[in-house]
Design a protein around this nucleic acid. Structure first.
Lengths: 161, 161
DNA sequence: GTATTTAAGTCAACATGGCTGACATAAATA
DNA sequence: TATTTATGTCAGCCATGTTGACTTAAATAC
């Protein structure tokens, strides 16, 4: 059970295990985002808005360039989505206190409400899976996912999150 | 370590753990697909083509409706992508042997070459993470991911994959 | 104090990959 | 024969990514 290379044809099993992992990631990501996508649609928002809402909520006083570094999209792409969120009062964008070129992004009260509704959905999804799988499985889950991250992300993740 | 609810403020820790899981999924999925996206671009293809190539390769003689059920997109969306792949000779589409309304999808030799190049990238990524994490972590990883799938997918996955 | 760099924003054009709705065709089935 | 099913197709729309060129304001270097 613990050895992923047992069986009559270790090489084949290994390949099959890897395929299973690839598919699990695909299915899990798809199902993980489905419910939130539906709720976002009622606001006229998409998954891109969710990501902004999420990271701004999670890392208050984030700057635009930091957000770009996390999302890995162009500033033109971000600006469309972020602009809508600021425009509609979900995110506030103020000049930084020391460096006034930077913009300090925060969720407004309205933004926090939406963030909370979305997070509730996803937390429930993860919490259920965690509860069913048990603490040891959770540790393994995190260990493997962390290993999939590239070096930069892993370091940022280990530092920041 | 095994108990995800330890610490001075169990509720907060729990919430933080859940946030970490959400972010890990985001980062891992992004990094997992990045290399393949770059290679696909050299063919003029995108991630949607990859999914088709992958599932047709993995489940030979798949029908269009089965593929639709896996991908959860509309047939119009699929048709664009699948049409290109058939047109350019990566996927063959023939009438089914018994039910001639169905189309039997298979990778061509050309398609298998591309599939192999893409799979090599992703298998390496997973294999490295698996190797670093160890067999027990792998079991936990799979258990948690499986728990994130909705019921239908979980059943299909447990049956088919 | 001027020159340069940096953070952010903007305009325009384009590509990918989702979506809906309406309709067509051929084959299986009632 | 009538209906249902599997697939394909046309047309248009939307969300979200891209590149390239340019602007503005503030910080920093010389």
């Amino acid at each position: 059970m613990a050895d992923i290379n047992t069986g009559p044809n270790p090489l084949f099993l290994r390949e099959d295990q890897l395929h299973q992992a690839m598919e699990l990631l695909f299915y899990a990501y798809r199902d993980f985002t489905a419910e939130c996508d539906a709720m976002l649609a009622t606001y006229g928002f998409g998954r891109a808005h969710h990501r902004v809402i999420y990271f701004v909520g999670r890392y208050p006083a984030l700057s635009v360039s930091e957000l770009l570094g996390i999302l890995r999209i162009t500033k033109q792409s971000l600006s469309r989505v972020l602009g809508e969120l600021v425009e509609q009062g979900f995110v506030s964008s103020r000049p930084g206190p020391t460096d006034r070129r930077r913009r300090v992004l925060e969720l407004t009260e309205k933004g926090r409400v939406l963030e909370s509704r979305l997070s509730t959905i996803q937390r429930a999804c993860i919490a259920r899976a965690y509860r069913e799988a048990g603490g040891e499985a959770v540790a393994g889950f995190r260990k493997v996912l962390l290993g999939i991250l590239n070096g930069d992300d892993r370091r940022r993740f280990e530092r920041g999150a």
